[in-house]
Design a protein around this nucleic acid. Structure first.
Length: 608
DNA sequence: GCCGTTTTCGGCCCGACTGTTTTCAGTCG
């Protein structure tokens, strides 16, 4: 169930953006951004806190605590409403466009009255933009391509955002139904979804439909029917945040400013204007309907083909004899697949990418699950850009039942994090002191290194050798030519102290393209050197992505499913990474952090 | 607006890059 934290964090981030546009003091702006992160990353649900307790949240002082309290009670706070009156919500959406920040967004609004992306594109096309001071031909081009990038995910929202919303709605509808769940691309674990499909089984659809259109999320009712009703959520930046009950999205590159705000209004992360369909079917056809509405279309075509060849007919109403129209099965998905001679196919595989043939041969992989994870190998603390202390992170990891946990704060070359060797060594001491407190969880001292353009990383060899674990990631120079990027990553793989490559392509869904890479070459290097590739669970990263995981797996690569958590609730990000890993057909044996500690240790310490 | 075994006031993460400039503003990481 969604916590108040994410919603309020979104309001604070939105307020920070509006302040930035209206020329507020930059330190004040930063305070609200930091407070948003503190609130979103706070482990306790705000709804259970009084104002004094709210005051204890990191980066929340007396002033913001009052606003947070008001927001928890009323859903907003007065200063935010004041600014919302001055600047239309659409202006904030302009800031989704890369390289278009608060100053330029305000300029196009004030000078040209532009308050949405369509109008901005039109202004680019007819040359209006060029009249503006500070807008030259190059800026025009940057905005044009930026709009294309944002439009690439037109109307789509991040899986985490959709999952949070879908689960929350299912929770509220379930008491009125015999069964209720979400289906569609969300159930298949796709990284973004264009709409949410909710399926319910009930004898009488009336109460369900009534409750559905009465949801506070239902801004517009698009269709109102007996079996299908569609609503659309409000087009408001703070309508929802990513991170499915798991804290606000961290800054994309652990950078402090800018990130928290883009999480609120940014890219595919907001759920504003999202269509949600509710379909109600009789309990007897639940399985057939769920199979049908889960898709994908391509998968269903393949399965129905199989049915036709067997003299059968499959629809959302059941599996029938083609000739007699006699119903064979419809109650559960298992029965439907089984009667067609197939293993039950996990939703994350239903893309017509070979799963039907595999199911027929009884050769579906035993997919990795969240329960199979024994540890997390990429986490941060407030020593760098996390919002939780070492103790809070360790306690939360232990709470999850992990057998091991690596703390991997940033390294010095990411200058704004102000990491030093002294700080790293002090943290290692602290970690050593805590070992006795966690007899059932091994504590690994790691670091997240930065891969320089030439493929080198922070710190000399003798320092690297003393870490239990080195993750190495690209945090800069995203636009090098493919040959250079490829060489850069291969060199990182070849570094004997680097055991995991973090978020290998550096993409941010809807906001930044992946770096240009010869992926097969990198995968081969990773396999040859025994360097694991990360599946980063950050909702807007999911990097590596599904199809690339499969390519890499075919080449024998080992993977790490990581949260990259910068706050306690974000440890849950492994959920999204695991769905992505399933879409890459991974089994626990291919995932480093599904292994027992002894085997992980062997992997980390073997001579290379 | 927040925060403090380097400050209860005076700092705040800050350097690089790029495009539009002619000395800088905006944006990003």
């Amino acid at each position: 169930m969604a916590r108040a934290n994410e919603r309020v964090a979104g309001l604070l981030a939105e307020y920070a953006e509006l302040l930035a546009m209206t020329g507020g003091d930059r330190f004040k702006i930063r305070s609200y951004e930091k407070a948003a992160r503190g609130v979103g990353g706070y482990a306790t649900d705000l709804a259970t806190l009084d104002e004094a307790a709210i005051r204890k949240i990191p980066n929340v002082g007396a002033s913001i605590a009052g606003k947070v309290h008001q927001a928890v009670q009323t859903g907003t706070f007065s200063q935010l409403e004041e600014l919302r009156r001055q600047i239309p919500a659409g202006v904030l959406t302009l800031m989704r466009i890369p390289n278009l920040g608060p100053a330029k967004a305000l300029a196009v609004y004030r000078e040209l009255g532009i308050a949405d992306i369509d109008a901005l594109l039109a202004a680019v096309e007819n040359g209006d933009l060029r009249q503006l001071k500070g807008f030259g031909p190059r800026t025009e081009e940057v905005i044009r391509t930026g709009i294309e990038l944002v439009r690439g995910g037109a109307g789509r929202v991040l899986m985490a955002t959709a999952l949070d919303l879908a689960e929350s709605i299912v929770d509220r509808l379930a008491p009125l139904a015999d069964r209720c769940t979400y289906a569609g691309s969300l159930r298949r674990g796709k990284e973004t979804v264009g709409d949410i499909d909710i399926l319910a089984a009930a004898a009488d659809s009336g109460p369900l439909m009534a409750a559905f259109v009465a949801l506070p999320e239902a801004d517009t009712v698009l269709v109102r029917g007996e079996t299908k009703t569609s609503i659309r959520t409000a087009l408001h930046p703070a309508a929802a945040l990513p991170a499915a009950g798991a804290g606000t999205q961290t800054d994309p590159d652990h950078t402090g400013t800018g990130g928290a705000s883009t999480a609120a209004a940014g890219g595919a992360s907001a759920a504003g204007g999202l269509q949600i369909d509710l379909r109600v079917v009789p309990q007897e056809v639940w399985g057939a309907a769920l199979q049908y509405f889960t898709g994908s279309r391509e998968h269903n075509v393949r399965v129905r083909e199989l049915a036709v060849h067997a003299g059968l007919k499959l629809s959302e109403y059941g599996l029938f004899h083609a000739e007699t129209d006699e119903l064979i099965v419809a109650g559960t998905e298992q029965e439907v697949y089984e009667r067609l001679g197939l293993q039950w196919i996990p939703p994350t595989l239903r893309e017509d990418l070979g799963e039907v043939a595999a199911a027929r041969a009884g050769e579906l992989p035993e997919l990795v699950t969240v329960d199979a994870l024994r540890g997390d190998l990429h986490t941060h603390t407030n020593l760098t850009d996390g919002v939780a202390s070492l103790d809070e992170m360790l306690a939360a990891a232990a709470e999850r039942g992990y057998d091991y946990c690596a703390v991997t704060d940033h390294a010095p070359e990411l200058f704004m994090q102000r990491m030093t060797l002294e700080k790293a060594l002090a943290q290692r001491e602290q970690l050593a002191e805590r070992r006795a407190r966690y007899p059932d969880m091994r504590l690994l001292h790691g670091t997240e290194l930065n891969i320089a353009p030439d493929g080198s990383v922070d710190w000399p060899e003798e320092v690297l050798a003393e870490f239990d674990l080195c993750v190495a990631s690209v945090h800069s120079h995203f636009t090098l030519p493919a040959a250079e990027q490829t060489r850069r990553l291969i060199r990182a793989c070849e570094n004997p102290y680097v055991q995991i490559i973090g978020h290998p392509t550096g993409r941010l869904i809807g906001r930044r393209e992946p770096i240009d890479l010869d992926l097969p070459a990198v995968f081969e290097a990773a396999a040859a050197t025994g360097t694991a590739l990360e599946i980063n669970g950050g909702p807007d990263r999911l990097d590596l992505r599904d199809e690339h995981i499969r390519w890499a797996a075919e080449r024998g690569v080992t993977f790490a499913i990581s949260s990259d958590a910068h706050a306690v609730p974000q440890l849950d990000f492994v959920r999204y990474a695991t769905l992505t890993a399933q879409r890459g057909w991974l089994t626990p044996d291919q995932v480093l952090n599904c292994w027992p500690y002894e085997r992980v240790l062997e992997f980390l310490t073997r001579p290379r």
